[in-house]
Design a protein around this nucleic acid. Structure first.
Lengths: 344, 344
DNA sequence: CTGAAAGCGCTTACAG
DNA sequence: CTGAAAGCGCTTACAG
């Protein structure tokens, strides 16, 4: 692979001039520039980004650590992040923490070793001090979706969505359909999204004079298996809930499994709703009512905030509203125009 | 951030000794090693991977360029790739080509500029010479899933699955259920997976004395929209097919949409099967019969082949068989034990 | 406008 | 076993 010296030799100039010509430095004569460009073309020269990074102390690379790539919500987030980063001239390296704190740490360490310019993190449950230490040590960090409460002393903006309003809409929807015994499958209490969604749900219930008994709070971990188990426990209750709200899409899928495995039907035997809307919810039997986050916008806003921090501007936290998307999994609602039921 | 010089100073040794101690070079005294390790610990020193890469001419990074991250098949592939790479001491940077040749080129160029040690590619339709040029220029390249036919002159192993047997099983399954007019929604003819699947289907039909008329070959692009359009065209035919086989999971989803939009039902009105099995197919209404690739194994084998090439060993192409997973979207088959139909 | 030179933070022959 | 020194491929003050 040709280096800058080869180009310089071929163009008959110094490496300094080659570098300047390639970096659009103003003080390069038209002639020199032309000869450099020609030499670059002939040799098929490509600047070595590693060398440049070492010299300039910037890699134009962002790290993104998410808790589960296989979760369509995070996949979409990752995609939006990469697109916006690319538009701003950055690449992104994705680390999949798989909801495991050690793996999250592994990725953070790896990313920092590679001297990424900034870090986007959706922290897992039970994280270690490493993440905050990294932020404290000066690496620009932005939280997306989830965040760590103790982060007030370090400047880490949070880009997330507020589901409070949508949860209220959901509970109103369920209430209108006649459901009174409402349960939730929560995420890990240690994650912000885990605890927040339960609180929003509880408050929304209270507005209708409804309670959220402990037996109606299933403890999940954002994975399908936990949704299934929590639902089985609900169904075993002497008085099972009439509706189940899963705090993420995978647990909703697990719930669907559990209901089916008992030969029961959604929504006839039990209503189901999920936090996080994903394309597949249109195709499940029945289509699932969900709270949709503005995922793409979240990813883009997070990148913009991070790049602001990296490039020395001040970055603010961003909260975007989520919204309820009514489908058929809670029953037919007079408010909507349900599509024809086409499943057998 | 402390550098190697800081560690050397603190440990009272030269930077050479620090480097050796950290890289487990045998000729370092126990005492020196201990002092270095202590200094590293105290300072929280982390070697700069950028500097190391420049010096050693290896980044211990793999590039993975896939055609569509949002496709669960590729998401799973990417996940397996990252896991195996991590196990072998490599990181991976993912580039999402989004089925667009220019974007694929952008990523390849970016990855090469960053001096990744090797490249894993599932090439898009209508690629440019860049990819093969890159391989020719010496960057280790391995194709996964799809490949470029003209690659015989360059040493690019192909890791893929062979769906021929599974397609035969599928056609036998459809035939047994009484379906005779069978159609396919093909991928882009320019992709290997696009053309291969049609050929396998045609051959399997021939074995049952069945034809594959042109009107029963829908032209898709591996995206949901094209599956919907192709299916609409099938349904508009004077004699619509009794079964539709979509060459990937997204087009199958589009087909499902099209069927539902007409108020028809799967499998009663038309049978549906897909290439690529994904977790969601269990939850669609009805669950979709699919050909499952050993996706994880494919990703891991591809990484092993690439790392073999990188580390100077010879790498061979790998072909793994796919298999048919019967669910309910083609009708009930006496051979299987269909689960209770739990949808309304 | 241009070039010689220093330096980014490491690794590694070379000499001792 | 250890250190001084060269060098990876760039960028960028500095001097002209």
């Amino acid at each position: 692979m040709p280096g800058i010296k080869d180009v310089a030799a071929r163009a008959g100039v110094s490496v300094a001039t080659v570098s300047r010509a390639l970096n659009r430095h103003p003080s390069v004569s038209e002639e020199a520039r032309a000869r450099v460009l020609a030499a670059v073309e002939e040799l098929g020269y490509r600047p070595n980004a590693v060398a440049r990074s070492l010299r300039t102390d910037q890699t134009r690379t962002l790290g993104l650590v998410i808790s589960d790539v296989m979760n369509p919500y995070f996949t979409e987030l990752a995609r939006a992040v990469e697109e916006e980063a690319r538009a701003l001239g950055y690449s992104v390296i994705i680390g999949n923490a798989d909801e495991r704190p050690e793996l999250q740490d592994h990725h953070i360490r790896n990313l920092v070793d590679r001297r990424i310019d900034g870090l986007l993190v959706s922290p897992t449950d039970g994280g270690t001090p490493l993440l905050l230490d990294t932020a404290r040590a000066g690496t620009p960090v932005v939280f997306v979706d989830r965040w760590i409460p103790g982060a007030d002393d370090v400047d880490v903006p949070v880009v997330r969505s507020d589901g409070r309003g949508a949860v209220r809409d959901l509970v109103a929807h369920l209430h209108r359909l006649g459901h009174r015994r409402l349960a939730i499958i929560a995420g890990p209490a240690a994650t912000t999204t885990g605890s927040e969604r339960v609180e929003a749900f509880r408050e929304a219930l209270a507005a209708h004079g409804l309670e959220l008994p402990d037996a109606y709070i299933g403890q999940g971990d954002f994975q399908a298996g936990s949704g299934r188990r929590a639902t089985e426990r609900f169904l075993d209750l002497p008085e099972p809930p009439e509706a189940v709200f899963a705090a993420d899409n995978l647990m909703a899928l697990g719930a669907l499994d559990a209901v089916r495995a008992r030969g029961l039907r959604v929504p006839d035997d039990i209503a189901l709703a999920a936090f996080d809307d994903i394309p597949w919810f249109v195709h499940t039997g029945p289509p699932v009512t969900a709270i949709a986050q503005p995922t793409g916008e979240l990813g883009r806003a997070a990148v913009r905030a991070l790049v602001d921090r990296i490039e020395g501007r001040t970055a603010r936290s961003v909260t975007l509203p989520a919204r309820l998307v009514v489908r058929r999994s809670c029953g037919e609602d007079g408010e909507t125009h349900p599509q024809k039921r086409s499943d057998p």
